[in-house]
Simulated scan of single mutants.
Amino acid sequence: MKLPPAATGFGLQPLNAPTDLRDFLTVCHRAAQRTGGAMTSTHPAGVTPNFHTVAIDYPGHSVAVLRHATLPLVAFTRPQLTSDTALAFVDEPPLAAAIHETSELEVLAVDQLHLPLARADLTALTSAELSQIAYWKPETVGDLLFNFWD
């Protein structure tokens, strides 16, 4: 997997951030409706984390939808405590299909997110990003893409 510049969230500013967040919330709302869920909370990206979060509740379980702040990438996790920085990535095929049908966002699967960073192509990353990787030492692509680095 080749990671594009801005994968870490460092070195490049989010493009059109307010519009992207608003669009992401609209996509999540539509996807939740299509799959029988309801959006229950949102948390915009900031200095940390480098991703927006939308919680969607379903009968019997909840899902957190993460949207990278600078790239059109989405992942799903189990909801976490606010102080917890360990993300438990999950696949949610119906929700992934609904997001794909209503947006240009790329939904990443668990196997992509769990790919060891040593097997990823980092050649397109900036020197600032490579410095951050050396400092934070993420182990997987998911750890790098969806992080709490400051």
Rank of each mutant, 00 (worst) to 15 (best):
L66T: 06
S41W: 07
A55V: 10
N50V: 05
P79F: 09
D23F: 13
P59H: 14
G60C: 09
Y58K: 02
I56P: 02
G60Y: 04
N50I: 01
G36N: 11
L71C: 06
Y58H: 13
P59E: 14
H52N: 13
V47R: 13
T70L: 10
F24E: 07
H43K: 04
T53W: 05
Y58A: 04
A69R: 10
G46I: 09
A38F: 10
A45L: 10
P49A: 11
R67N: 12
T42I: 11
L71P: 07
R67T: 04
R34C: 03
N50S: 05
H68N: 03
Y58S: 06
R34S: 11
V54N: 00
T70K: 11
G37Y: 00
R78L: 15
N50T: 00
R30I: 15
A45R: 08
S62Y: 11
V63H: 05
C28I: 03
L71S: 04
V65R: 07
T48R: 14
H68S: 02
S41L: 06
V27W: 09
H43S: 04
T48Y: 08
T40E: 13
G37D: 04
V47Q: 12
P59T: 12
L66D: 06
R67G: 00
V74P: 06
R78A: 12
D23R: 15
R22W: 10
R67L: 13
P72R: 07
L73D: 07
H52R: 02
L66Q: 07
A75W: 01
